[in-house]
Design a protein around this nucleic acid. Structure first.
Ligand SMILES: [Mn+2]
Ligand SMILES: [Mn+2]
Ligand SMILES: [Zn+2]
Ligand SMILES: [Zn+2]
Lengths: 133, 133
DNA sequence: TTGATATTGAGAATGAATATCAATACTATC
DNA sequence: GATAGTATTGATATTCATTCTCAATATCAA
């Protein structure tokens, strides 16, 4: 996909990557690559769609963006907090709250072990309607 | 999509729907519509792809099938237990264990309320490698 | 048996995401 | 600053899951 580069070279800095990072940072909640690209174009940027897809994938790989799938569409969001965490997302406006939950982590680990599963990972997202919607 | 029917009519019984329900029941874990259709055709059934998609959507709507998305693909699984529950899924062979978790339910509800979100729902899935893999 | 209509399915259409690949932009190095 | 090696870009083609179309058919209540 897009690790630093097969040869270990660093990631080059381009105005396209900056544009994607900035545009993502200006959004409140999760956005699709398509939507972000449309927004950039409307703002006058000539950036290409494929580039937006690649930049988002890189940001996610670098931990600078969170990623989730809803209704078969990949959504991204600028991620400040480092480390493992989850999200509380507004179904209507997309507003998102980052949440950590030690109890859920412990539960997931325990459930997996209990049934003989190893290398356990988990997907935990909470959706609802925020107070503004 | 596939509610009972706009006019409230019941769901008609067809060999196609039975075939999909049966094929799904014979599988251990989650399957895609494509895979299930391929399996049915291999077994000699002339059932159409669109019909498999529709039957699976109906089963899910009726609560007779569980549904989840992984890597942009919709997966289905025959669901015995009624009521809300989650899954522990083997990444490799697809083996699945249904799990209920009152603690996670309570946590999700509390987190949503804490941030002023209402009508909260949640997605909770645990993936790992089962003891056979 | 019959009529109203839900269901089916082959093929077309949609749409997100990825692959191509020549042109271009970065960066380290001199 | 000039240069070379290569990562990046993007218009375009392509893939692939899923949905749509709509005429033909099957189901079921009466
Ligand atoms: Mn977690
Ligand atoms: Mn739950
Ligand atoms: Zn909202
Ligand atoms: Zn397994």
């Amino acid at each position: 996909m897009s690790e630093p580069t097969m040869s270990g070279a660093p990631r080059r800095r381009t105005w396209q990557r900056d544009a994607v990072r900035d545009a993502l940072g200006e959004r409140d909640g999760f956005v699709s690559a398509q939507a972000l690209h449309a927004g950039l174009r409307e703002a006058g940027s000539p950036i290409g769609l494929a580039t937006v897809y690649r930049a988002l994938a890189d940001l996610a790989a670098d931990g600078a963006a969170d990623h989730l799938q809803v209704e078969g569409e990949a959504l991204y969001r600028a991620c400040g907090s480092s480390g493992h965490h989850h999200h509380l997302i507004c179904r209507s406006c997309g507003k998102t709250v980052e949440i950590g939950a030690a109890e859920v982590e412990a539960w997931a680990k325990a459930v997996a072990a209990e049934h003989g599963f190893r290398e356990a990972e988990h997907v935990v997202d909470v959706f609802g309607l925020c107070s503004d919607c």
